[in-house]
């Protein structure tokens, strides 16, 4: 199953962020040349979160001891032993990570189902909201949910929300049918957050 982990525009080159897949914590990063990768959020050395690490060129390094991993997840450098070739067994836990129509998707390693079709949509923004799917349902009458993808109309513009479970809350990744409406949809999204959080309290 693919899980949306944000919008492409929110993960620039050379940046790493935290993400998740079905309860597993992830480090998602983009190399300087633009390559995306998603790994389990633990360095195999001492269990440090790789999402606290740093990107240099086409590699991600752990912030604790600088162990460096290439896009395939294999450790390529151990700074404490600069001349040693790291054993192949030292490898980050690799997930599939792709982006389409401005959304970053993560899935387990191996073959996967097709991505939800968001062609023709433009990314608006992502928000976090403290509330559950029930509260979201009450806050979005008229929206139809197909898995994590919610579709509806806002002021005559088609809107898609890709929903991601995030701890006690949800991540909402919003897209709309026309670039000219991004500001209006972004304002509407602020209202949705307020509504969901009110609903979650009742």
């Amino acid at each position: 199953m693919w899980v949306a982990n944000g919008l492409s525009q929110d993960l620039p080159s050379g940046v790493v962020m935290a993400g998740n897949w079905q309860g597993a914590e992830l480090a998602i990063w983009r190399s300087v040349s633009g390559r995306l990768a998603a790994w389990g959020d633990r360095c195999p050395h001492r269990g440090m979160r790789l999402s606290h690490g740093f990107v240099r060129g086409e590699t991600l390094s752990c912030i604790y001891h600088g162990w460096t991993y290439g896009s395939d997840g294999a450790c390529s450098k151990i700074p404490a032993h600069p001349t040693m070739v790291p054993p192949a067994a030292i490898k980050a836990e690799v997930y599939q990570c792709v982006e389409a129509d401005g959304v970053i998707w993560v899935g387990p390693a191996g073959p996967e189902a097709d991505l939800p079709d968001l062609s023709g949509m433009v990314a608006v923004r992502s928000v976090s909201v403290l509330g559950d799917v029930a509260a979201l349902t009450r806050a979005l009458p008229g929206f139809v949910a197909d898995g994590a993808l919610w579709r509806g109309q806002v002021g005559g513009v088609s809107v898609s929300l890709v929903v991601q479970a995030r701890g006690a809350g949800l991540g909402l990744h919003a897209l709309c049918g026309a670039a000219a409406h991004r500001v209006a949809v972004s304002r509407w999204l602020d209202g949705v957050v307020q509504l969901v959080e009110q609903e979650a309290l009742t």
């Binding site: 195999p44 050395h45 001492r46 269990g47 440090m48 979160r49 606290h52 032993h81 067994a89 030292i90």
Partner: peptide
């Protein structure tokens, strides 16, 4: 660092974390 290691407990059985000569 210490508040961001997984797991919080120190693993004593080998296999979960990979040490080197350092």
């Amino acid at each position: 660092i210490l508040e961001n290691q997984i797991p919080r407990l120190l693993p004593l059985d080998p296999g979960k974390e990979i040490p080197t000569q350092a």
